[in-house]
Structure formats: C-alpha cells, structure tokens
C-alpha cells in the first residue's frame, strides 16, 4: 500500500469520528472518577464540572484494595520473571539449533496457549486444594506460566531469528564459549525484545481474571477480582469503582503504549512481524 497517499478530508473526518467512538468509553470512566456523586448521576450528563479527587483518596485509603493492588504487582512481576527465566533460553535454542522434531516441539509450545481455561482449571483447583496452594500467590504464578511461557519463547525466538548469526561466530572465533556469547553478545543486543516480552507477560498477568477468581481468596486476590468489592449491598459506588478502574488501567495502558512498536508481533507471538 502506498502509504504516502493522503486520505481526503471526508475520510479523515470519518476516521476521527471512529477513533472518538473508541475513546469515549474510557474517557467517560475517567470523567466519572473525578465527579462528585451528584455530578456523576446528572441528566443530561455533565461534560464540564468541578473535578474532585475524593474518589481516588477513598480508594487509596482503602487498605484491602491497596493490599490486592500489591498482590497484582507481585504476581505480575513473578510471572514475568519466571517467563523470562525459562522462555528466553528456550527461544534461543529454537532459533539457533537444529535438531529432530524441532518444528513439532515449537508448535507444541505454541499450542499450550490453546487449551480452554475451563479445561485446566478443574485439575488445578483439585490439586491445589490437596497441596494447600489455593489462595496463594505462588500457585497463581505457576498457573500463569501456562500462557507466559509460550508467549516469551515464541517472541524471543522471533527476535533472535532477526539477529545475524555472524555476531556469535565472530566472538566464537575469538575463543569465547557459547555461554559467554549469549551473556555478553546476544543478551545485550536483545534489550527491545526482552523489554517487549516482559511487558506483554506483565500485561496479560495483570489483566487475567478467570484463574484469579477461582484460585484466590481473601489473602491472595488480585485487583481485578477485588474491584467487585466496591459493589456493595447499598448499590454500586460508581465514583470509587471508576477511580479504582482507572488506577488498574494506568500501568497496563502506559506499558502497552511504551512497546507499541512490538505490539503486533507480541500479541500474535511472532506470527506477524
């Protein structure tokens, strides 16, 4: 497609109307989060009003919410660390070595993401109940490896494929071992790939709901599960829910926009470059 061609004015307006439609729901959530209760339920809806931070203060002072927020942070970091630890070497091996059944193995790793969560949750729940891993952060991290490992392996395989082999050959001629090559030549050049894999794993762990809903309890809940605690018997406290929602969205949206360039290859696990 000739990307230099410019849309005419009419098409540009259509495009921006569509973009606007996609932006309004999030914008509305944000506006609700900085409205007083009265303003939030005003009809017709108010677009201009005096913003307040009281909803955010209520959420930030809510001890259990912050506890669950921290749980989410810890689970996401641990999931990412485990994913990188196991996935990066595997991705390197799939990229650089040839061995029998390599393609089958690579496809099997990819296919582990296909399993419907409802299939694996029953065994995990029953097993965790027996070995006392229910309602623990460690248990959740282990289950999250079901998606993070395939993710990191495939993304890093794609990234390593893009690095020329000459790099290693040169330093191996100089007498460096394979391990040394990886540590001091390949990894330093893989910054963007590692960063993108890490952020994707972080985002998918942060956003995950199904496993967290079933496997966690009052101690290890993650924040997506906990946000429902603002839906009380008196009704839904929309101001606070919106503020909590925005606080949940902020890290993933910022991280996601940071790795925008790698978003396509990340989300399709390298199927689209």
């Amino acid at each position: 497609m000739n990307s230099k061609s410019k849309n005419n004015i009419f098409l540009q307006i259509v495009l921006w109307l569509i973009i606007l439609a996609f932006t309004v729901p999030t914008l509305w959530l944000f506006l609700t989060s900085i409205k007083t209760r009265v303003d939030a339920f005003a009809m017709p809806p108010k677009w201009i009003f005096k913003p307040v931070v009281s909803n955010y203060l209520t959420v930030l002072h809510n001890k259990s919410f912050m506890h669950y927020y921290l749980n989410s942070v810890m689970v996401a970091i641990a999931t990412t660390a485990l994913g990188l630890l196991l996935g990066v070497p595997a991705g390197y091996a799939l990229s650089r070595y040839n061995f029998k059944k390599k393609d089958d193995l690579a496809f099997w790793i990819l296919s582990t993401r296909m399993a419907p969560p409802i299939l694996v949750i029953v065994p995990f729940y029953l097993l965790f109940r027996r070995i006392h891993l229910l309602d623990t952060l460690a248990g959740l991290v282990l289950v999250y490896a079901t998606f993070s490992l395939a993710f990191v392996t495939w993304m890093m395989k794609g990234y390593f494929d893009g690095l020329p082999r000459d790099l290693e050959e040169a330093s191996r001629v100089d007498g460096a071992t394979r391990l040394r090559c990886i540590v001091s030549v390949i990894l330093p050049l893989s910054g963007p790939g590692l960063m993108a894999s890490a952020i994707f794993t972080f985002i998918s762990s942060w956003n995950e709901y199904f496993y967290a809903l079933i496997l966690t309890g009052t101690r290890s809940q993650t924040v997506p599960v906990a946000i429902n605690s603002f839906i009380t018997f008196e009704g839904i406290r929309w101001g606070e829910i919106s503020a909590a929602g925005i606080l949940i969205l902020v890290p993933v949206v910022i991280f996601g926009l940071l790795v925008q360039k790698y978003l396509v290859s990340g989300l399709t696990m390298g199927a689209v470059k």
């Binding site: 497609m1 990307s3 230099k4 061609s5 410019k6 849309n7 098409l11 540009q12 495009l15 921006w16 973009i19 996609f22 932006t23 729901p25 999030t26 509305w28 959530l29 985002i203 942060w206 956003n207 709901y209 997506p224 599960v225 946000i227 429902n228 829910i241 929602g245 949940i248 969205l249 993933v252 949206v253 996601g256 926009l257 925008q260 978003l263």
Partner: peptide
C-alpha cells in the same frame, strides 16, 4: 494512509485492547 494526527490516533485506538477486561466490563 497518512492523516491528521496519525501518531495520536494510533495510540488512542490501542487503549481498548490493553484495558483490563474486568474494568472494561464495569465501564
């Protein structure tokens, strides 16, 4: 095709799919 505010539009359109599904539901 290039259009007014290409960069901004490309960022804005990404926000829905980055958003946490539970928050999307509540929204």
């Amino acid at each position: 095709n290039s259009h007014f505010g290409s960069r901004l539009s490309k960022s804005l359109i990404l926000i829905p799919m980055l958003s946490t599904p539970v928050v999307v539901g509540l929204m």
